[in-house]
């Protein structure tokens, strides 16, 4: 069951990161918007304590003044005069890798389920 917990954790992380990437792309024309990202480490730190953590002073609060869930603002140098630091190409590549890894995790998950079914003798593949 440890494997299942690990896979679920990773899937949660990928979903959360996809949310952040979607936010970056949506804000690709917003002045003074710095691109955000989430590392697995920060995600685990947030999940472990059951609380969201602020790892940067620019973090904004959500709900009852809680900072964003382990989100880190990347210190990209803004390329545009309006101070926007989102690079759409970079975000698209990131989204592709998230999708790929998500596929990998779901495949592993279903393989694991097959393994259990096989062990229980309920129609699992031999």
């Amino acid at each position: 069951m440890q494997l299942q917990a690990a896979l679920t954790n990773r899937l949660n992380y990928l979903t959360q990161r996809q949310n952040i990437v979607a936010g970056n792309i949506a804000n690709a024309s917003t002045p003074n918007y710095g691109a955000r990202d989430l590392t697995f480490q920060a995600h685990l730190a947030g999940a472990g304590s059951g609380q969201m953590v602020a790892t940067h002073r620019q973090h904004f609060g959500i709900g009852a003044g809680r900072p964003g869930a382990g989100t880190i603002s990347r210190q990209n140098h803004p390329l545009r005069l309006d101070g926007n630091a989102v690079r759409v190409e970079e975000e698209t590549l990131k989204m592709g890798s998230i999708r790929g890894e998500f596929g990998l995790m779901t495949t592993t998950y279903s393989k694991m389920a097959q393994l259990y079914r096989s062990a229980l003798g309920v129609g699992g593949q031999q």
Binding site: T15, Q18, V21, A22, A26, T92, R99, F102, T106
Partner: peptide, 20 residues
């Protein structure tokens, strides 16, 4: 178009999740 591709990627990810 970039936002549309985000929606498309989300759809693919959801499909993968449902295939589990």
């Amino acid at each position: 178009e970039a936002n549309l591709s985000v929606i498309d990627t989300n759809r693919q990810m959801m499909q993968r999740l449902l295939s589990v």
